[in-house]
Amino acid sequence: MNLSYWEIKSWLANIDFTVVGSGIVGLNCALQLKSKFPKANILILEKGMLPQGASTKNAGFACFGSLSEILEDLRNHTEEEVFGLVKKRVEGLKLLRQTLGDGKLDYQQLGGYELFTQHDDLLELCHAKKGEINNLLKPIFKSDVFAIKDNMFNFKNIKEYYIFNAFEGQLDTGKMMEALLNKAQTKGIKILNNINVEDFSEDNVSIKIKTNQFEFSTSKLFIATNGFASQLNIPDVQPARAQVLITKPIKNLHIKGTFHLDRGYYYFRNIDNRILFGGGRNLDFKTEETTKFAQTDLVQNKLEELLRVTILPNIDFEIDHRWSGIMGVGNQKKAIVKQLSNNVFCGVRLGGMGVAIGSLIGRELADLLH
């Protein structure tokens, strides 16, 4: 790349900390590092034009898990582990709101609803286990989280009751990331976009980083690439694509809140008088285990069908836009926050809960540097 003396001197010389990924984890990590080391020269490298993975692609749910998701987690984790996961998500959301303020997030606590299809016996299981889970989570929320409510939204082919969670909120993902980027830049943190880190090597003094545009050295490296972690040889993180669509504005839209369906594999919400609807990864897990941003007919057709038959029956709607995001998942829900070598650290595998835990994981990643 044809870099001038000034460009190298101003942007790529004497870098103390390099963060890979300008998503919610990377930005929070950089902000925390700047707070701990005010004089540090910090550079963030982002492979996309915007934060590429899931931070600007997600549905904007400020949630910590529906009742059926928590029950599912208890099949693979201990009660203590599940309690810890929920606690971390709640603390992460609190930290996010403290960092940016509800106004900048457009945060609204309209509650969350879990719906159950007519042929699914999951509602009965959730009903039976509701008291047990409320007791498990009571130390966090100081009251019952989950309650049974009547179906008041005129959804079709849905059981007449659903599980309501008053503690769930929603936010504007774009505003969240814009506010985080602004905050980082006002602190003097440099951000370079369209830079893909291809490789790095470490000696006792520094780390040499090779990108698609240039090579440079840094004292410490923090990897916050979540779903793309395996591309930098971090094991135990699989990419998981989530496909989303949004309708054009709908007059007199009666749906307010965040909604979960089929163990959280489908989710929808209101935003700007539209319905934002995502999910369907469970229709074809293997195909959706990818870092490729794209949509498939299988998933998109299913989303449209559910909109037409279940969510917006007897309402004319048009699809305005479709997109996808890449999450990082694994066989455990716990995020990987660890030191990889003398000067390399990572905070990855957010398990689809990036909005909830991203701020906290970013802080923990920076805190690895004592």
Rank of each mutant, 00 (worst) to 15 (best):
I246P: 02
F259Q: 03
N204A: 09
N252T: 02
V244H: 12
I250V: 04
K94W: 03
G257L: 02
K210Y: 07
G60C: 05
K34P: 09
K302N: 07
L93R: 07
S68G: 06
L136F: 10
I271T: 04
H119N: 14
D121M: 00
S219M: 02
L100M: 09
P38R: 03
Y5C: 06
L67E: 01
A147R: 09
G112I: 00
S230D: 10
C63D: 09
N151G: 09
F259D: 02
N76D: 02
D284I: 05
N135Y: 00
E318D: 08
M176H: 04
H321E: 15
N204Q: 06
L115F: 14
A229G: 05
I24K: 10
S359H: 06
Q231N: 12
S4P: 05
L307C: 04
F83D: 08
Q295M: 06
A54W: 01
R363L: 12
I326R: 03
S55C: 08
M1V: 03
N233I: 00
D262S: 15
I275Y: 10
F17H: 14
S66W: 04
H370Q: 12
N314P: 01
L369V: 09
L45Q: 09
M49W: 05
K39N: 11
A13E: 09
T310Q: 12
L298Y: 09
M177F: 04
H119L: 08
G48C: 03
A147Y: 11
P235Y: 01
K57E: 13
Q231W: 06
Q118S: 14
R349W: 00
P249R: 02
K39S: 14
P235F: 06
R97N: 08
L192D: 04
N157L: 14
S55H: 12
L307E: 11
F222D: 09
I24L: 07
P313H: 05
E178R: 14
F285K: 10
K190H: 11
D272Q: 09
